[in-house]
Amino acid sequence: MFSSSSTSLSKKRLLLIVGILTGAVVLLEILFSSLLPEGLMTQSLRGKCDYIVSHPAPDIQVMGDSVSQGGIFANRLEETLNAHPGSRPVTVRNDSLGGTSPLFAYYVLKRQLRAGHKPDVILFAPNMAVTSNPIPERFWGRFARPGEMAESLRLGMPLSDMVFGLACRLSYTMRYREELRGAVTAGNLEFFKTARLPVELPGSESVESQPAPPENPNETFDARELPWMLKQPFRPLPYVDNHIRAFIELAAENGIHIFWIPMPIPQVVSDFQRESGTVAGFERYLQSFATEYENVRILFPESAVYPDSHFKDTWHLTDFGAWNFSGTLGEALTMYLSENPELLPGTAR
C-alpha cells in the first residue's frame, strides 16, 4: 500500500499529466482543422448533398455508393430510355455518393423531399458488402445533422459507433486517419493536394460516347487478393436493415418507385460469394423486399458477372464496363417501363 501523501502526490501528478495531455490534443486538433484542408471526399459528399437538395429532382435518380457512382452513366441511361420517345423525355441523374452506405441514402432522400424535390423512380444500387460494414464513423463524422444522429440511434445504431463517430466529428486526425496514414507511411500527399479542387457535381460526367475498350484485356484478379470486405458473409447489420426499410417506406409514402440494382461483379468475386452462400443470401434478401414492399422492384435477380477487364479493381467498373452495364440497364428499364407506364407519369410509350 502507498502512504496517503505519496498517493495524493501521484494523483496530483496524474491529474496534471491528463490535463496537459488533453490540452495538447485539443490544441493540435484545432491547429489541424484550421490549417489542413477538409478531404475531397467530405467536400464532394457535402457539395453533392447540397446540390441534390437544392436542385429539382430528375425523373430517375440513381442512389448508391462509389460502385454505382462510377458504374452507371446517367447520360447513357437517359439516351437509351429516350431512344423510344414517349410524350416527354426522361431525365436521369446519378446521385450516388462515393464512400457511403445505405444510411446516407435515407437521409439524403429525406433532406431532398423536405426541400420539395421528388424523383419518380430511384435506382437503388448499394454494394452488398457495405450492409455489414456501413462506415458509421463517416456518417457521424462527416455527414449527419443532430436530428439525423438521434434518428440513427432510434433505428438501432450501436452506442459504440456513436462514440467513435462523434470522436471523428470532433477530431481532424480521427476523421482523416486513413488519409493521414497514407501520407505518413507512403508519402502520399494526394489528399492535401486535391482537397482544394472543385468538387465533382452530379451531371458532370464527361463520357458522351462509347469509351475505349480496356487497355489490358487479359488482366485477371486473384482470389487471394480479394479485399476482406468482399470475403465477409452477407449478413446485413440490423440497424442498416432498419435504415433500408425506412428508406423504402419513405419512398413509398411519397409515391416513389424503387428499382434495386445489383451491380456487376468479376468472376473471382462471384465464385467466392457463390461458394460462401453470399449470393444466395443476397438474392433472398432482395426478394424479401420485393415481396414485402409494393414499391420495390428487382430488374436483375443477382449481380451480373462481367469480365475482369471491365473492372478497375475487384469492386469498380471501368468506363468501358460502366458504358456496357448502363446500356444493359437502360434496355431492361425501357422494357419494364413500357409495360408499366404508370411508374413514370407522362412518359407512356
Partner: peptide, 16 residues
C-alpha cells in the same frame, strides 16, 4: 512523458 503519451495517441490514431 507527455510527449511520449502524445506520440502513442497519435501513433494509434494515424498508424493503427
Amino acid at each position: 512523458l507527455v510527449l511520449f503519451y502524445l506520440a502513442l495517441i497519435y501513433g494509434i490514431l494515424i498508424l493503427g
